[in-house]
Computed example of a mutant assay.
Amino acid sequence: MQLDLNLLAALDALLEEGSVAGAADRLHVTAPAMSRSLGRIRRTTGDQILVRTGRTMTPTPYALAVREQVHDLLQQVRGVLAPSRALDLSTLERTFTLRWHDALVALSGPALLDAVRAQAPGARLRFIAESSIDTSELRRGEVDLAADADRPAAREIRAERVAETRHVVIVRQGHSLTTGETVTAAMYAAAEHLTVSRRGRLTNLLDDALARLDLTRRVVATVPTERAAFEFVRGSDLVVTAPESTARSAVSDLGLVLLPLPLDVPPAAVHLSWHQRYDTDPAHAWLRDLARNALAGAMARPVSTAGSAAKDRTEPSA
């Protein structure tokens, strides 16, 4: 049997998009051409691949079973037919898509962009927001590099822990927790809290730590970003807990105070993640190095506070 490798690309697009029109747009061909490709795939495999269910197309059990294999085979074919060449940064013309936590974009994005522009003027960075649901852009190749607190579970996703920082408590100046007394776990639990969660979660590891001490806290609201949380805190008696490195700017910009967290919790980690298809891509490896340095450097910067009193309160307890 003579095989047409173009059918492999068509099958991958059909399985990823779940529709003829979507696959046609992805491969920049007409819908009739993609329909013909689907017909050839059906004749070759002896399977319908996609069947109509109402107004949508549903993959068959066979299609679901081979989807990952088809995607990996296509990447291998592309790697063979388009092998990597020596990287010339001066002529590199490429747009990298980065899905980073919003606080990490603000904290490390400018340094990364400066490094990229200095070495590869033709390269561009495209930062996109995190989703409120789990997505698979890394697997589909729509995102080149992700950076956030979570370590991906999928085997084909590489992940590297590049930095970490302790959690701190953020309150407005004059808050009752800033009276000079050492903040205890009981005092912390008694305050009204705000959580930061792009998924809208009201509980997290802090509640587990409090439960181990037979304490509970009252969370009155949750917001999707730390910057939004800081705006809530600056005009109220609410308390928010966040990674120290990403909270630094709030101290100087908004006049907030950082306090040590009186709980034993693991530090907030930053993981850099990418799909294994990019392991040997020289341009991607170059970007990973710059991103690693930008993230680690930003997380390691010394604390900058609004005043010496606030600075003293951020020092670890003896």
Rank of each mutant, 00 (worst) to 15 (best):
F230I: 01
E226N: 09
L73F: 11
S19N: 08
A115T: 04
L238A: 02
L287T: 02
H284S: 10
A13G: 00
A268M: 00
S108P: 08
T135W: 04
R201V: 05
A154V: 06
E181Y: 02
A228P: 03
R85N: 09
A191G: 07
G200Q: 01
E244W: 02
H71G: 06
A115D: 12
D4I: 06
L92D: 03
D214Q: 13
G79M: 04
A250C: 02
A189M: 01
L27W: 09
R234C: 06
V143C: 09
D289H: 12
E226D: 04
L125M: 08
T280D: 14
L215E: 02
V183F: 06
L145C: 07
A129D: 14
A228D: 11
R94H: 10
E164A: 13
E142C: 09
V251T: 06
S273P: 10
D264F: 05
V303T: 15
L107F: 10
D102E: 10
Q75F: 12
A229W: 00
D150K: 15
A111S: 13
D72Q: 11
A269W: 03
L38S: 07
A146S: 14
L5V: 12
V219T: 15
R52G: 01
T178W: 04
R172F: 05
R212P: 05
M299V: 10
T91M: 01
I49R: 05
I170P: 04
D279H: 12
A23E: 03
A247P: 08
A129N: 11
R151K: 15
D12S: 15
L50N: 06
V223I: 05
T225Q: 05
D148P: 04
A229H: 04
G235F: 06
H167T: 07
A186N: 07
D12L: 03
L64T: 10
L98I: 06
R201H: 14
M187H: 01
D289T: 11
T203K: 13
H284Q: 13
R158I: 09
L258G: 14
T53K: 12
G180E: 05
R52E: 10
R139V: 10
R292G: 09
A103H: 10
P282D: 07
W100Y: 10
R124W: 01
V219G: 01
V169D: 02
S176T: 11
T60V: 06
E68K: 14
D47W: 09
T56H: 15
D114V: 07
G235C: 03
D150R: 15
Y62M: 07
T203N: 08
L259E: 05
R199S: 14
L125Y: 01
E68D: 13
N293A: 15
T60P: 00
A106S: 12
N6V: 11
G180W: 02
T135H: 15
A106E: 13
S273Q: 15
E231Q: 13
A120Q: 04
S108T: 07
I157A: 02
L213K: 14
E156Y: 11
D279N: 13
W274F: 12
H167R: 14
A229F: 00
G255C: 03
G18P: 10
L104M: 14
T178F: 00
P61Y: 07
V29F: 00
V143I: 13
T178H: 01
G200K: 02
T246P: 04
T45S: 14
T60G: 03
T241K: 00
A211F: 09
R155H: 14
F230H: 11
A189V: 08
T241V: 14
T45R: 08
A221F: 04
G180Y: 00
E17T: 12
T44V: 11
V220Y: 01
A306S: 13
A190E: 15
